[in-house]
């Protein structure tokens, strides 16, 4: 043990124990490889293509962008989120990591927070920038500040799907049990959001918030508040369940 005194020890304790190393690993696995630009390229191409079709009518082009941004990158989010916890539980790498001085809370948070950043950059912010430039090119430029603020609800939607999938991944062992609910939200979320009765009362209402911010037509704050509450609840549930998981 005395030989280890030549080293500067990690001082993270309690729930933070191991978080910085795990978060760094998740960020490196994304930004340190081709994953980040491949995802950015794919979704920039898809969203740019669909949006440019509608830019003859400025608002139509943006509406297409938001709807597509709520659906297509979400599929990639689902894939990333399923792999991040379910595969690690199944393969044994999670058990290896947890045999180190790592808290289970840190393990779950290191899946949720860095991946939120990865997804926001590659699947929302970069495609969003390109779509904005296309809108300028087509003479349908929205207010730049409003447009970029409108991407926050889009990021929150992707975070909702990430948190939901990770949370379900802590409860179940099979991919089929984990993905069905997020898939329903991906394909029917936009419809739910446009429903006047239940639209504002869930993360699905974030689509109308995004378009409302971008077009300046006003929006309800309920979806934003409810989504924040839901994210905290899903994160807490994931931590609670994972802390009881037996390897």
């Amino acid at each position: 043990m005395s030989r280890s005194k030549a080293f500067e020890p990690v001082i993270e304790t309690g729930w933070r124990m191991g978080f910085s190393n795990l978060a760094r690993k998740e960020l490196k696995a994304w930004f340190g490889t081709s994953a980040w630009w491949q995802q950015a390229l794919m979704w920039t191409g898809a969203l740019g293509l669909f949006s440019s079709i509608g830019f003859q009518e400025p608002e139509t082009g943006l509406m297409i962008f938001y709807i597509m941004a709520f659906i297509f990158p979400s599929i990639a989010v689902l894939v990333v989120a399923t792999g991040t916890i379910l595969e690690e539980k199944d393969s044994g790498s999670a058990a290896w990591v947890l045999s180190k001085p790592v808290s289970r809370t840190a393990f779950v948070l290191a899946k949720l927070l860095p991946n939120s950043l990865n997804i926001a950059v590659s699947m929302v912010l970069i495609p969003g920038l390109v779509v904005f430039l296309l809108a300028v090119l087509f003479g349908a430029a929205p207010n730049i500040l409003a447009f970029y603020v409108s991407l926050i609800p889009v990021i929150m939607w992707q975070m909702f799907l990430l948190f939901l999938t990770v949370c379900l991944g802590t409860f179940f062992e099979k991919a089929g049990s984990v993905v069905w609910l997020p898939i329903i939200f991906i394909f029917f979320g936009a419809n739910l959001g446009m429903n006047t009765t239940i639209g504002p009362f869930g993360p699905w209402g974030l689509l109308t918030v995004a378009t409302g911010i971008s077009t300046g037509t006003g929006f309800s704050v309920y979806p934003l508040i409810i989504t924040i509450v839901v994210l905290v609840a899903l994160g807490a549930a994931a931590i609670w369940r994972f802390s009881r998981h037996e390897f």
């Binding site: 500067e8 990690v10 190393n21 180190k100 790592v102």
Partner: peptide, 15 residues
């Protein structure tokens, strides 16, 4: 390196 970082922050050359 990944395993080492759970215990030690540095010095890098020693790690």
């Amino acid at each position: 390196r990944f395993a080492a970082r759970f215990y030690f922050k540095g010095p890098r050359d020693k790690i």
